[in-house]
């Protein structure tokens, strides 16, 4: 049986007063809607003075891949959140069109495009890493990634680096 220790009164009260000082964010998806939340979390952490590591794995590595980071699109197939008919989502050009619309709305809110956003986060002091297992699997090299990437690291390195902080998986 699992038991949870909690202070009396409100649930979560035991941890509520402990400020977060470090986050390590994992980016595993390569779609626009898969990448942005992680970038907003990383940037937001730095803005609050929280130390931030961002670990790009699997298709999430597209966000730091020089050849791909300018071409990240909204996934229009199998994405019920868009409220598009399934067959329509697969029409050629649909993903590009929806992406363009979304980028326009984001620009209005001063949310930068992915390449600029990643650079901004690195400039803000967040550390960016690529996942070694994924790099090996996709036969990528250091040179395929933007200069802001600190290193290609193993999952063990990641856990070590994340020690004492919170881990967020996206």
């Amino acid at each position: 049986m699992t038991t949870f220790t909690q202070a009396a009164g409100t649930p979560g009260a035991a941890v509520a007063d402990q400020p977060i000082t470090k986050v390590s964010i994992i980016v595993s998806k390569g779609s626009l809607e898969g990448i942005y939340p992680a970038l907003i979390l990383a940037n937001g952490a730095r803005m609050e003075g929280i130390e931030a590591n961002v670990f790009f794995t699997f298709f999430g590595m597209d966000a730091i891949n020089k050849a791909r980071h300018e071409h990240i699109k909204v996934s229009t197939v199998g994405n019920p959140g868009l409220h598009l008919a399934t067959w329509l989502g697969g029409v050629p050009g649909m993903s590009a069109l929806v992406t363009q619309q979304m980028m326009k709305s984001m620009e209005k809110l001063d949310i930068p495009p992915i390449p600029e956003f990643v650079e901004m986060i690195a400039d803000a002091g967040a550390k960016l890493y690529a996942c070694k297992a994924s790099v090996d699997m996709f036969a990528l090299k250091r040179a395929d990634f933007i200069d802001q990437v600190e290193a290609i690291i193993t999952v063990g390195d990641f856990y070590q680096m994340a020690g004492g902080g919170q881990i967020i998986f996206t």
Partner: peptide, 27 residues
């Protein structure tokens, strides 16, 4: 202004903003 606008228009880039105002320049 957002941190992005601040970095672009204030005359001080993001990197320096974090050096001048550690623990979160915008706030």
């Amino acid at each position: 202004p957002s941190i992005r606008t601040l970095g672009k228009e204030s005359g001080v880039a993001i990197k320096e903003l974090y050096l001048l105002f550690p623990k979160g320049p915008a706030k």
